[in-house]
Write a protein that binds this DNA or RNA. Structure first.
Length: 381
RNA sequence: CACCCUCCUUGUCGAC
C-alpha cells in the first residue's frame, strides 16, 4: 500500500496542490513529514498565512518546520518576520542559520550577514558559499577572494560563485584564470564562463566557448541567444531559437522581449500566446513590452487577464500595471490594484511597488486637478 | 540512521 504521505508528495510535485491538500485533510494519522510537507507546499505557493496557521496547529514543530516558515518569509521579502521566527525557535539547525544568512544577503544587508556568519556555530560550506556570493554581489571581490581562499573543501558552487563574481565585475582576466583552475567543471561552470563573455560584449569568444563546451544545455543556448539579442542581432537570435534542441519558457521570454525591443509587438504577442508554459516573468515581460511600446491599454488589459488566470503576481507585474494606470490616468483601476495589494499583504514593504503607486496617484491627481480646473472654466463660461 | 528545508549559470521590472 502506498502511504498517504507518499501520495500527497506525489500530488504536490505534479502540481496538484488542491488534491494534496484534500488528501492531507483526510489523513487519519498525519505524520510529521506530512505536516511539514503541507506547510512547504503552502509557503511555496505564497499562501504564507495558511502555512502559518498550519504551522501553529502542528502538534510538534521541528527545526525543519521552522526553517520552512523562515524561508517562506524570506521569499516574500518579509525579513523582519523571518528574523523574529529565527529568534523565537527553540533550537536552530545549521540550515536555520544558513536560511537567515541567505535572507539577509538577499535583502542586501551585508553587515548584518557578516555578523550572523560570525555567530553561526557550525559554519559549513553552504554558509561560506553564501558569504562569498554576498561579497561578490556587493562588489567586494577582494573580500570574496579572501573568504574563498579560507574555505576548506570548496565545491563546484564555491568556484562558480567566485567566477561569476569576477565576470559581473568585468574582470575577464580573473574570470578566465579561475575557470582554468576549477578542478571539475560542471554545466554551471561552463555556462558561467559563456555568460561572462556575453555580458562583457565578447560575443565571438562566447560563441567559441559555446562551440567547444562539453556541457551544453538549454541555459547555454539561452545565454547565446540573449547575447545576439542584446547586440541587436535579432535574426541570429531567432535562428538560434529555431535550432535549439530544447526550448523552455526562458528561451521564449527572451525572444518575446527581443521582438518587442525591435518594434515587432505583434510577433512578440504571437509567440507569447503560443507558449505551453507561461510563468510570472513571461507575463511580466509581455506586459512591459506593451508599456514600453506606449500601448498602456494593452498592458493593463493583459495584466487583468494575468490576474484572472490566477498567475502569481510579483512586484514587477504590479509596478508595470500601475505604470500603465498612470499613463492612462486610470485612477479607478489604480485604486483597485492598490486595494488588492493591501488585501494580499504581500507587497506592503516593497519600495518598487510603492514608488509606482505614488507615481500613479500623482499623475492621476494632476489630471484630476486639470480636469477640475477645466470644468470650472467651462462653468464660468 | 536515512529522508524533506539553506549556496553557484540563462528570460521581465527595480525610484538621481
Amino acid at each position: 500500500a502506498i502511504s498517504g504521505t507518499t501520495m500527497m508528495t506525489a500530488y504536490a510535485q505534479t502540481g496538484h496542490v488542491v488534491e494534496a491538500k484534500e488528501l492531507f485533510l483526510r489523513m487519519p494519522e498525519k505524520t510529521s513529514v506530512s505536516w511539514n510537507f503541507m506547510i512547504l507546499v503552502l509557503a511555496n505557493h505564497k499562501e504564507l498565512a495558511r502555512a502559518k496557521t498550519l504551522f501553529d496547529a502542528m502538534p510538534e514543530r521541528t527545526a525543519y518546520s521552522w526553517n520552512i516558515m523562515i524561508q517562506g518569509y524570506v521569499d516574500n521579502s518579509r525579513f523582519q518576520s523571518a528574523l523574529a521566527a529565527f529568534e523565537r525557535m527553540p533550537q536552530r539547525s545549521t540550515a536555520s542559520w544558513n536560511t537567515v544568512l541567505a535572507g539577509l544577503v538577499a535583502a542586501g544587508h551585508l553587515r548584518e550577514a557578516e555578523r550572523v556568519f560570525e555567530a553561526t556555530p557550525h559554519r559549513d560550506l553552504h554558509a561560506h558559499n553564501t558569504m562569498v556570493s554576498a561579497y561578490c554581489k556587493a562588489g567586494a571581490l577582494h573580500r570574496a577572494r579572501e573568504l574563498f581562499d579560507e574555505t576548506q573543501n570548496r565545491n563546484g558552487v564555491t568556484w562558480n560563485t567566485l567566477l561569476s563574481g569576477y565576470a559581473t565585475a568585468g574582470d575577464m582576466a580573473r574570470t578566465r584564470s579561475v575557470f582554468d583552475k576549477v578542478p571539475h567543471r560542471n554545466f554551471v561552470c561552463w555556462n558561467a564562463l559563456l555568460q561572462a563573455y556575453v555580458q562583457n560584449g565578447q560575443l565571438s569568444t562566447a560563441k567559441a566557448t559555446f562551440d567547444v563546451s562539453p556541457c551544453r544545455d538549454v541555459a547555454s543556448w539561452n545565454a547565446m541567444m540573449q547575447g545576439f539579442a542584446e547586440e541587436g542581432q535579432l535574426q541570429d537570435a531567432e535562428l538560434l531559437f529555431q535550432r535549439m534542441p530544447k526550448r523552455d519558457v526562458v528561451s521564449a521570454t527572451a525572444l518575446v522581449v527581443a521582438y518587442a525591443r525591435h518594434g515587432h509587438i505583434t510577433q512578440a504577442r504571437a509567440l507569447f500566446d503560443g507558449l505551453p508554459v507561461r510563468d510570472t516573468i513571461a507575463w511580466n515581460a509581455m506586459i512591459a513590452a506593451y508599456t514600453q511600446a506606449g500601448l498602456a491599454l494593452d498592458a493593463l488589459n493583459l495584466f487583468k487577464v494575468m490576474d484572472l488566470e490566477a498567475v502569481p503576481l510579483d512586484h514587477a507585474s504590479l509596478s508595470s500595471a500601475l505604470d500603465a494606470c498612470a499613463t492612462l490616468a486610470a485612477l479607478r483601476e489604480g485604486k483597485l490594484i492598490h486595494s488588492s495589494i493591501l488585501h494580499s499583504e504581500l507587497f506592503h514593504s516593497n519600495t518598487i511597488v510603492a514608488t509606482s503607486l505614488i507615481t500613479m496617484y500623482a499623475r492621476c491627481a494632476r489630471l484630476c486637478e486639470a480636469k477640475r480646473a477645466f470644468d470650472g472654466l467651462t462653468k464660468r463660461d
